[in-house]
Write a protein that binds this DNA or RNA. Structure first.
Length: 207
DNA sequence: CGCGTTTGACCCGCGC
DNA sequence: GCGCGGGTCAAACGCG
């Protein structure tokens, strides 16, 4: 397993897409119907010291996406937690600032688009590849992975963007029913707001 | 030998 | 009903 720090990722080039539910029309980000996407800031991006934040606030307030320069495992976890623990909806055509006004979540699908020289990113979870398909209108194949943890049915798809192969699109579907087997997360409490947030993480020695 | 990957076959939904 | 495309299955294969 490659450590995150070894990957040549450009977090400032990362976009997030909230995918429509499978029963909605269109094909998500490919057709341009994805709802919310926002690029990260172009700051110095110190991924060694993740900035504490409550992701749900980022959904409510249309602000710069600090998590864009955080390592995928950290952001990944926060996104799943945010979706799992709040009333965030992931609408088609909705803006980020309106998300909190929406109904219950209808989807558990998130797509990451990031500039990367590698397709397989160590996000702390253990994945088993179960399929590979060439997709229409794209020279690049799409790879299918399942979380290999027993009882967890989270899937992810990985493919390179057809227009710019330097970008990798990773789509997560489902929510892990377990913690990352290789990551240890630390939480802190903000006395002023009364909220807890993830203040850091560490790859566990056993992984 | 066990585990993960590969890859062709199969299934299913959708549009015509 | 048929063809197409996306997603999944599972046997074969490779590697440590």
């Amino acid at each position: 397993m490659a450590a995150v720090g070894e990957l040549q990722l450009h977090y400032s080039d990362m976009d997030l897409y909230f995918m429509p539910h499978e029963n909605s029309s269109g094909s998500g980000y490919e057709s341009g119907s994805a709802s919310s996407s926002f690029s990260g800031p172009t700051g110095d991006g110190n991924s060694d010291n993740p900035i504490p934040f409550d992701l749900s606030e980022y959904f409510r307030d249309e602000v710069s996406m600090h998590s864009s320069f955080l390592p995928p495992p950290y952001m990944d976890n926060c996104l799943f937690q945010a979706i799992q623990s709040s009333d965030i909806n992931l609408p088609v055509g909705g803006s980020v600032s309106r998300i909190a006004e929406m109904d219950k979540p209808r989807t558990e699908r998130i797509a990451f688009r990031m500039k990367s020289v590698v397709e397989i990113i160590d996000d702390g979870f253990k994945w088993r590849k179960y399929g590979k398909k060439s997709v229409k209108n794209s020279p690049n194949p799409r790879n299918y992975y399942k979380c290999s943890t027993e009882g967890c049915s989270v899937k992810k798809r990985v493919e390179r963007e057809k227009d710019d192969p330097s970008y990798v699109i990773t789509t997560y579907e489902g929510i892990h029913n377990h913690v990352s087997p290789s990551m240890v997360y630390y939480t802190s409490h903000d006395a002023e707001s009364g909220q807890y947030y993830v203040s850091g993480y560490q790859i566990s020695p056993g992984s």
